[in-house]
């Protein structure tokens, strides 16, 4: 059995109606010592390119959440394949400025820090070998701006894309290094949060 747990994300075009894009997160853990209780994060501002030309765009933000929301479908977003795309991991400051919003950005989603103000870009909570960890990653202001731009280029024009897993063995190694006696706790904007988000974004860009 391979150690590690995997989150996979696919885009694929629906051949009958090529205007739709599906986006799927597949959460799957094969590591018996890792128990993920919460894993959710914002993604948004998707832009798709074909030979350098923008071919589709979805500006909304979506809260992806393990066991609750693992798939997104963009209807009529694109009418040709893409060979590159980018999106925001975490909520950018322009969106913060727009004020209160509904849906995925509604503050009742518990992804908003009331005393520091600002969206929490990602929450990952659970236990590793009985050591608890709570990563609340966010921050919109320099030098603790945590949201990341993820850019991916593909080798050919396509409708689907599969990401490398980010909660894999590398995640567990990082977590292990960050663990203190009482586990690992990040609850406000700070350097460690930015580094975690950079690491996750880099994992998503690796292929």
């Amino acid at each position: 059995m391979r150690l590690g747990c995997f989150i996979l994300m696919w885009f694929w075009g629906n051949l009958k109606a090529q205007h739709d894009i599906h986006l799927k997160w597949n959460f799957h853990s094969t590591d018996p010592y890792l128990n993920i209780e919460v894993c959710k994060f914002y993604v948004g501002n998707f832009v798709f390119y074909n030979h350098g030309i923008e071919v589709g765009r979805a500006e909304d933000y979506f809260l992806m959440e393990r066991l609750k929301r693992e798939e997104l479908v963009f209807h009529e977003c694109i009418n040709t394949g893409f060979d590159a795309f980018e999106f925001q991991l975490g909520v950018d400051s322009i969106t913060h400025e727009r004020g209160v919003m509904m849906g995925d950005l509604d503050p009742v989603q518990n992804m908003y820090w009331t005393w520091q103000a600002g969206y929490i870009d990602a929450k990952i909570e659970g236990k590793w070998k009985e050591h608890p960890f709570q990563l609340h990653l966010g921050g919109y202001q320099h030098p603790y701006r945590a949201d990341q731009k993820v850019r991916v280029s593909c080798s050919k024009v396509q409708y689907e894309y599969q990401f490398d897993s980010f909660l894999d063995i590398g995640f567990i190694q990082r977590l292990n290094e960050a663990m203190g006696d009482n586990g690992c706790l990040i609850m406000s904007p700070r350097t460690e949060a930015v580094e975690w988000m950079q690491w996750i974004a880099n994992k998503m860009m690796e292929h």
Partner: peptide, 16 residues
């Protein structure tokens, strides 16, 4: 200056 986004301000006292 903890709160830079005006509309969210009431959340601070409500949840504190």
């Amino acid at each position: 200056g903890a709160i830079a986004f005006f509309d969210f301000q009431p959340l601070a006292p409500i949840t504190h």
